[in-house]
Design a protein around this nucleic acid. Structure first.
Ligand SMILES: Nc1ccn([C@H]2C[C@H](O)[C@@H](COP(=O)(O)OP(=O)(O)OP(=O)(O)O)O2)c(=O)n1
Ligand SMILES: [Mg+2]
Length: 1157
DNA sequence: ATCCTCCCCTAC
DNA sequence: TAAGGTAGGGGAGGAT
């Protein structure tokens, strides 16, 4: 395994080397690039050493002033971290980029500190940057005390380590108390107080949570657990060893206790109180030496800087502020709004005509319209002087600032959207940076859509700056009006018309907005998009049928929509880099590597096929809110409070969408074990492990408070150190329309507003049954007044309590949310009567109810392990069942609140945390297989790096693929390759009645019978293990059947299908002809061949192949001169003509000219 | 087989 | 300094 792993790693590495990252600094998201932990650690170490060695070497003979000093910088400093680093190393010191728990720093350099009592940083040598500067200036090491950042208590600690020793002494559950005390007086706490937020009154709780004690070690530990030791190199082992030494005992006891205490508190309060008591941060037990700097302490230090505080979760206005500045948030919300708007417009317009109208199933004309460098173009309107210079839109010019949009001059340097400033500036030092102007983007977009809608086609919004327009009917109408029948097809005229429409639209938008848009035109969405690429910037391009294959073939696979890093990697592994390579790959291979859907989609894309219709927009299935930036907590309370706020936001969104849901998923990003406390990106999440956990409510809800409590419980169950949290998200699924617009018995209530879109008012009361919302009546009615009220995204609007939200009303006419309701088909009538009743209960009670376990209602408790495996969790009762501690009465146990259950479970039995179980499925991710050693969970995914696994087993997996293939019956059967016969079958299903009617009676019967028979065979074939056999079997079928034409198992396996395919078809023809040359071919067989060739032309788009087959057929027939058998020969000749005609028809269907034979 | 859950992946 | 959100498609694998 080792060698294979190595091999793969190498391959991945290689790929990465060539891969052009679009952004970041390569440190972060790049980890996926590493070939595994061993490699990862090795690289990290080497890298640091190299850097310092270089600095030292370049330093010349500077005095070793800092000899013996091990420095570390926290927060924003002047001079910068980089400069200080350099300065220290140059002068004989050692610099730590980050504290990783095993290294000690002698001095911590920072500009500011939190108020005295908050944390005992005084124990460290906290010095100002000036100490470094001045020491160098002085040519000697100045007393650090003169630069002490805080002047409180003496500094006795000589070293600082993260975690470490403290844990071992943790056994005593004393620390908690102390911790609490500190927390209470912390700067943050006082801040909260001053803001009126009730802080830690729970501090009285004697039980303190050690929740934050065992952070990073866990991850390390899990690594250690991995049975991959053999592959671990020495560095790795050494590291693990080291960590192990530090490994403290698990502090489960305290954890559980605290949790219970918290729970109790929670129940008593029930008020709008933010969250339960904050388990005070745990102060290090302060082992004599080497007091660890916990991540909470680190955060506190970091937040000492007021500016930091302002932009992180320490700011109570954080959510509102963050969302107002987040481009991605804006993008997402805009998109959702546009989707609603379009749906509404579509509904208003004509609900029916579409289906009928679009009969000419072939030839479509789709436009993809998109602004050129949207944000940048709009923002630059204020800076005309930069338009011709490389410019980007970003929040700042720091290294971690992300570029939302760059103009074309900047792109010439290789700058791309999404790239981090650091990289961009390396590529283009003269980059101009301009700020965002969200309102202006909205305005431009509004004008854009006005113009797009004016066109009159079917519109589908893709994003704020991008839309699809199906102008088929416009184009066809125009062509027809010019006197040519549609069916006749006058592609040329149509194409001209399409170009004209696009041209006019571009002009119009430019006029209205002053910005350029480009337009791509093609016969389907895929082609329109591909055309758009060629059109940019400020242009338009129409892909004509005859150039489709050439254009597509030359593209890299990543240029296809839906293919990016991961899928691109999988394809590269099978030697596919260009779209043309996909064409040379059998569909089986694609599906076995990528999955049935993805495989088929790409197979089609490669041939320019995309059947997706413009305008099809599915109903919303989830609502969520998450933040993965600026998350820096210094205690559990903050974290819980934040979760609460997030849930309020979620409530707002649910109301706005007019839905409620019964499934909640909490997503947590936690700093990875080996990740630095300060990631490369300012307040970014850095390298993280992510954990999801979901729970099911007994009944759908949209109550933020209720959801908040559940979410907090989940958070607690994870038992993460708050200081290590880097991202939090909450998502609700299993949605139901809020306004249960009369499920079944609606009729009776018609007297009321009747329709869904009526006034909300307190309808709830009236229809208790429908409103199975556990929210409090008061709240509910309130919300009902104007759900649309507050627009979470709109920057300017202060995010207030939902109550005040209504102020906002401007936004949308109630219709805004209508669409969703309307679309939300389902009228859920609680099948289980209870829910309705439950819904009436106050949240708290309801919660209990839900928590209890009528069955599957109780929230799941899965992470009983103090260190849940990252990402991957399983859920539900089953797991729970098995896991109920033996010494607990199941009933009692189940009745407990889920978080407590989690705690209990956590304290029982060997934690089953399997090591890093993140299993990358992507070949581009590290394929470290960290096989969960004893993965307690029998199931799970193989627990290994997906790729390796697949790659390795690929060969033998083939076997299994056979089975897999069978599963995907539907899919496979329609494969052109494997079975033209099947295609035929499929085709028959939609057999044209007219065609049937025209057949002679006997023939018709035969056709129908055969059709039926084949379907049967097809079906039964599914059960057969080996797909390939199906055809044979079928063919040899009953006498009634004529020859089955089982041509081209096209691209079979590895061989470049093409040839194999053709050869087989030829053989088939030979046999067919040989056996029936006397009486002539059976009409059915002829049809089969015709359909097959039609598909070759229309779908596979291999004109050469079609031509060759026909030529071959013709040759075979003509060559048959032996004895003039009249009838047979004549029939065969007719067959040739018939087949040719069929192919020509197919050509025409594609808008191509006649084929020359 | 099919459905369901829990992710991963992609797009803007 | 900086604002790394969010929804849907779909794959893997367990439950039914
Ligand atoms: N990683 C990204 C990608 C896009 N966007 C925003 C800014 C873009 O202006 C807008 C539209 O995205 P496009 O992909 O259409 O990119 P542009 O319009 O900037 O450039 P172009 O369409 O010319 O390629 O979305 C973003 O914030 N972050
Ligand atoms: Mg654009």
């Amino acid at each position: 395994m080792g060698s294979r792993l190595e091999k793969n790693s190498t391959a991945v590495r290689k790929r990465l080397e060539n891969h052009e990252f679009t952004g970041e600094d390569g440190e972060e998201y790049a980890p996926s690039a590493f070939g595994g932990f061993p490699d990862y650690f090795r690289r990290k170490k080497i890298k640091l050493q190299n850097v310092d060695a270089e600095i030292r070497a370049a330093a010349g003979d500077k005095p070793p002033i800092f000899k013996g000093v091990v420095g570390h910088v926290i927060g924003y400093t002047q001079p910068s971290l980089t400069d200080i680093h350099k300065a220290i190393v140059e002068h004989g010191g050692v610099f730590l980029q980050y504290l990783d728990g095993k290294t000690m720093a002698t001095h911590i350099i920072c500009s500011a500190l939190p108020p005295k009592k908050s944390l005992e940083f005084s124990k460290y040598r906290m010095v100002k940057p000036a100490w470094v500067v001045d020491s160098i200036k002085a040519g000697k090491l100045l007393p650090w005390a003169d630069y002490k950042v805080i002047d409180e208590g003496g500094a006795r600690q000589k070293t600082i380590r993260l975690d470490g020793g403290k844990m071992s002494s943790q056994a005593t559950q004393q620390p908690p108390l102390r911790y609490r005390e500190q927390t209470q007086n912390s700067f943050y706490t006082s801040q909260l107080r001053s803001m009126g937020t009730s802080p830690a009154q729970g501090s009285s709780s004697p039980l303190v949570t050690p929740r934050l004690n065992k952070p990073r070690l866990q991850a390390v530990e899990s690594i250690e657990d991995d049975p991959m030791d053999e592959d671990i190199d020495d560095d790795m082992m050494a590291l693990v060893e080291e960590e192990r030494q530090l490994e403290p005992g698990r502090a489960q006891e305290p954890a559980r206790a605290s949790s219970m205490a918290l729970e109790a508190t929670e129940e008593t309060e029930e008020g709008p109180t933010p969250a339960a008591q904050p388990p005070p941060p745990d102060p290090p037990v302060a082992p004599k030496e080497g007091k660890p700097l916990t991540s909470e302490e680190h955060n506190a230090l970091l937040l000492a800087d007021p500016r930091m505080r302002k932009s992180s979760t320490a700011n109570p206005e954080f959510l509102k502020q963050y969302y107002s500045e987040s481009r991605l948030h804006h993008l997402s919300t805009w998109k959702a709004e546009l989707k609603s708007k379009m749906q509404r417009l579509a509904a208003e317009r004509g609900p029916a005509p579409k289906g009928v109208k679009r009969k000419p199933g072939l030839r479509r004309y789709i436009m993809h319209v998109d602004f050129d460098s949207f944000f940048c173009a709009v923002s630059l309107k204020k800076y005309p002087e930069f338009v011709d210079k490389p410019a980007v839109v970003a929040h700042g010019s720091g290294s971690g600032s992300e570029i939302a949009s760059c103009n074309y001059p900047a792109r010439k340097f290789g700058v791309k959207n999404g790239m981090w400033m650091k990289r961009a500036q390396e590529l283009c030092p003269d980059l101009k940076v301009v700020g965002y102007d969200f309102p202006a983007y909205e305005e431009a977009s509004a004008l854009f859509y006005d113009a797009v809608l004016e066109v009159g086609g079917v519109v589908q919004s893709v994003s704020i700056d991008e839309a699809l327009v199906d102008i088929t009917s416009l184009v066809l109408d125009a062509a027809v009006s010019k006197g040519v029948g549609v069916s006749e097809g006058s592609p040329w005229r149509e194409q001209e018309k399409a170009d004209e429409i696009a041209s006019r639209l571009r002009e119009r938008i430019k006029e209205k907005t002053g910005c350029n848009v480009s337009v791509g035109i093609g016969g389907n969405i895929l082609l329109a998009k591909v055309a758009l690429r060629k059109a940019k910037p400020a242009g338009q391009y129409q892909i004509r049928p005859e150039e489709v294959l050439d254009i597509l073939g030359a593209l890299k696979v990543e240029d296809l929509p839906g293919v990016a890093y991961s899928i691109g990697g999988k394809l590269e592994e099978i030697g596919v880099k260009l779209v043309s390579n996909i064409r040379q790959t059998s569909k089986e291979r694609l599906t076995s590597v990528l999955g049935p859907k993805t495989g088929e989609k790409l197979w089609e894309y490669a041939r320019g096929i995309d059947k997706t219709e413009v305008g099809e927009q599915p109903v919303r299935k989830s609502v969520s809110a998450e933040v993965n930036w600026g998350i820096r907590f210094i205690n559990q309370q903050e974290a819980e409070e934040f979760v609460g706020n997030l849930c309020k936001e979620l409530e707002r969104r649910l109301l706005n969408e007019g839905v409620k849901g019964k499934h909640l998923t909490v997503k947590i990003m936690r700093r990875a074990a080996d990740a630095p406390l300060d990631p490369p990106k300012h307040l970014g999440h850095g390298e993280c492990d992510t954990f999801n956990k979901s729970i099911v409510f007994g009944v759908a809800t949209n109550n933020g408070e209720f959801i908040g409590k559940e979410a907090v419980a989940v958070l607690r169950a994870f038992n993460f150190s708050p200081g290590d949290l880097r991202g939090i998200g909450v998502q609700v699924t299993k949605l139901e329309p809020l306004k249960a617009s009369a499920p079944e018995g609606s009729q009776k209530r018609l007297n009321f507003g009747s329709f869904a879109a009526h006034t909300p008012a307190k309808k709830q009361r009236t229809e208790p049954i429908e409103e199975g919302t556990p929210e409090k009546p008061k709240t509910a009615s309130h919300h009902e007044v104007d759900p649309i009220a507050d627009d979470p995204l709109t920057p300017r609007k202060p995010k207030v309590h939902p109550a005040l939200a209504l102020a906002k009303a401007n936004e949308a006419d109630a219709s805004a949310r209508t669409p969703l309701n309307v679309t939300g088909t389902q009228f859920i009538m609680p099948s289980n009567a209870d829910p309705a009743v439950i819904a009436e209960l106050p949240p708290d009670i309801n919660r209990h109810f839900v928590t209890k376990p009528p069955e599957n209602n109780f929230p799941d408790v899965k992470s009983r392990d103090p260190t849940p495996a990252p990402v991957k969790s399983r859920t539900q009762s089953p797991a729970l069942q098995d896991e109920i501690p033996a010494d607990f009465d199941p009933e009692v146990f189940l009745a407990l609140p889920e978080d407590i259950k989690a705690e209990i479970l956590a304290s029982h039995g060997p934690s089953r945390s399997r090591g890093q179980s993140v299993l990358p499925q992507s070949p581009r991710k590290d394929r470290i297989l960290q096989p969960p050693k004893r993965a307690p969970t029998p199931t799970k995914r193989g627990g290994r790096g997906g790729k390796i696994h697949s790659l390795f087993n690929r060969a033998k997996a083939k076997q299994q693929d056979a089975n897999a293939g069978l599963h995907q019956t539907n899919f496979l059967t329609r494969d052109t390759k494997r079975a033209p016969v099947d295609q035929e079958i499929e085709a028959l299903e939609e057999i044209d009645p007219t065609f049937l009617a025209e057949l002679p009676e006997d023939v018709r019967k035969e056709v129908v019978a055969d059709h039926r028979r084949r379907r049967m065979a097809q079906r039964s074939g599914l059960l057969a293990p080996v797909p390939s056999r199906q055809e044979n079997k079928r063919r040899s079928g009953t006498g009634e059947t004529k020859l089955k034409f089982p041509p081209p198992p096209p691209k079979v396996g590895l061989s470049g299908s093409g040839l194999t395919d053709l050869t087989e078809v030829k053989d088939m023809i030979n046999a067919w002809h040989r056996e029936t040359k006397a009486e002539g071919p059976h009409v059915d067989d002829v049809r089969v061949l015709e359909k097959y060739l039609a598909r070759v032309v229309v779908e596979e788009r291999d004109m050469e192949k079609a031509k060759k087959v026909i030529r071959w057929l013709e040759w075979v027939v003509d060559a048959d001169e032996d004895e003039d058998e009249g009838r047979g020969k004549e029939a065969w000749s007719e067959t040739v003509e018939s087949v040719k005609a069929a192919v020509q028809a197919a050509m025409a269907e594609r808008g191509l000219g006649k084929m020359e034979f």
